[in-house]
Design a protein around this nucleic acid. Sequence first.
DNA 1: GCGAGCATTGACACCGGTGACAATAAGGGA
DNA 2: TCCCTTATTGTCACCGGTGTCAATGCTCGC
Lengths: 356, 356
Amino acid sequence: MKPGPSERPALPVNEPRRRPTINDVARLANVSKKTVSRVINQSPFVNKETRERIETVIKDLGYAPDPVARGLASRRSYLVGLIYDNPNPQHVIDTQQGILDIIRGSGLELAIHPCNRRDKDFLSGVRGFIDRQKLAGVILPSSVSEDEDLVAVLREHDTPYIRIASVLLDEPEHSIVTNDSEGARQAAEHLAGLGHRIIAHVSGPDTFRSSHERRRGFVEGLKTADLALDKKLDLRAGYTFQSGVEAGRRLMAMQTRPTAVFCGNDEMAAGVCQAIRETGLDIGKDVSVVGFDDSPLASRMWPALTTVLLPIRASGRMASVRLIGDRLTKEPQEEDRQGEVHPTLVVRASSGPVKA
Amino acid sequence: MKPGPSERPALPVNEPRRRPTINDVARLANVSKKTVSRVINQSPFVNKETRERIETVIKDLGYAPDPVARGLASRRSYLVGLIYDNPNPQHVIDTQQGILDIIRGSGLELAIHPCNRRDKDFLSGVRGFIDRQKLAGVILPSSVSEDEDLVAVLREHDTPYIRIASVLLDEPEHSIVTNDSEGARQAAEHLAGLGHRIIAHVSGPDTFRSSHERRRGFVEGLKTADLALDKKLDLRAGYTFQSGVEAGRRLMAMQTRPTAVFCGNDEMAAGVCQAIRETGLDIGKDVSVVGFDDSPLASRMWPALTTVLLPIRASGRMASVRLIGDRLTKEPQEEDRQGEVHPTLVVRASSGPVKA
DNA sequence: GCGAGCATTGACACCGGTGACAATAAGGGA
DNA sequence: TCCCTTATTGTCACCGGTGTCAATGCTCGC
């Protein structure tokens, strides 16, 4: 906030090296700029020879259309928005990376907008974001994807969006499904297969759909082994390390201690492991622990954590293809055209056969 | 790449609810749009009453200038770019968050551009990014901040930039310093104070300036305790977990085994811990380990890792203030106007007194 | 009373594209 | 041969702001 003496300081601009514009191309190709515009927009209504002539000029000049000008004229920018509310950095990074895998090289850029769904001005912040920038589209990873108010805002602003969610929503064409329950089912079957009968569950907050999905899958998996989830062994925690520690302590203090624990994410699993250690018990021997996410933590812990790998990056790619597939310069991989990913169990040392 | 039958499918637009433009404001305030433009740009050459009248209309209308149009006219967009090449997700997230702390609410957005400095077309990718979008500015966190070619490209395109680096560069006005060596010095003094005399160092790759800075500080700290770094105990690793495991194994196999290890980051420290465990030794008792970064891993490991906390988020805030401080709506905190951050040692269980 | 100088405001072109629609040329059937 | 289509291209306004520079109205010193 310091307006200089003149209205604008005027940077020292090197005039000579100026980016070519559509006018330069038009002049050199001896056509109107509208025709050049058609060529860059892949309009089919351009004569083959004309197109080739223009393409040559474009290449010679090293011309690239200005996304800002295009955005103004077409009332839609070349920015993809990523709105998220996720405390897991790896999850965020993977999602970002997946989106970039796809849009890289297509002239689109990724603008990020972390937020906090519990803030009272959460929605107005998001509204400002999508309204100011006329986003080409928005990707909503798990958690914010469940926010119907947010989705309503996007619809209201005619902003395309894709939701990445743990389970199929009522808008399949706007969704990518991560099938969390499948992973939890595998975890349950794995533990049951190791002979465990008293298996606890530490879940994330009820406000997350993924918490429910993971529990549902887990219960389903138990059922195939003729087991049921004991209500007393079904603990709500907060997806955080500390909440995992506390849940773990409660479990370890029970008279009939569980021989295995399935946790809704790796952070909580690490917390549970800490609580187990405090008790002097051996992880993977006395008590087996299974997490969810396959975060970097899982493989770096000791003993390394058995967990469920969720292909987050792939889900980001799929969401991007679905969102702006028709604007891409390179044809996307077939696998990235799918609408869902499937989790897989990664068995490590934190889970082992039940002690006799 | 599928051009429809018509040149553009034309979305179903809800005409009625249209964003107010500068023209609407001008008409209602009975002035020219240029004067409105002056008001939104805080020009001092506007009569107080006129300004107030216009501000009222702006508020009534809920008018907000269109960043895309502004970008086109002023030849500088409202996008801040973050270019990085860093495998540590927490580091990246913290930097992003720091930048957003500052630009949030000012109409600027953050566009991210991860890259790989070893790619041969790394520079052309970056060039495309900053040239297409006429970025308001670019922030270069540690690692890419050391790339002189990259900086040259930015200068060439008249794009403002701020470098976040471990040590003061020759462009102080474009830099934020993280003083990594200070943290390493504290780590050395901490270990020496615990009575350790045989202290190893596991560093990151030589291609990172931070590796050198951390070593330099470490050596400096040893010196204050009249110790020197034994060349045989100074191992190069790769900032990765696996490289830490390998370095740790080499250290544990030595005939005069070090009683303490200082690692250039937490990932490698976790790897070293794994190697120590494989040997059957006790971390924090037989061998002390100190890391660098205070990543989430550090506090979740067992035993928890003594490490150096680097205020990355704060450095992101400082970089942003320095980059676009004059475009901010809210006055930044005094502390965010600084040009450097200072690391602090976080003592946990992985370091303890040397065994008698 | 008058020109200079400052404060304030406006006119207008332009930033670099796109949309709507007109214009033109070429081909085809009556 | 002539009109109607279809294919291709161009014209022109406009997207929503900013830059340049001129115009206007006042105040002040002499």
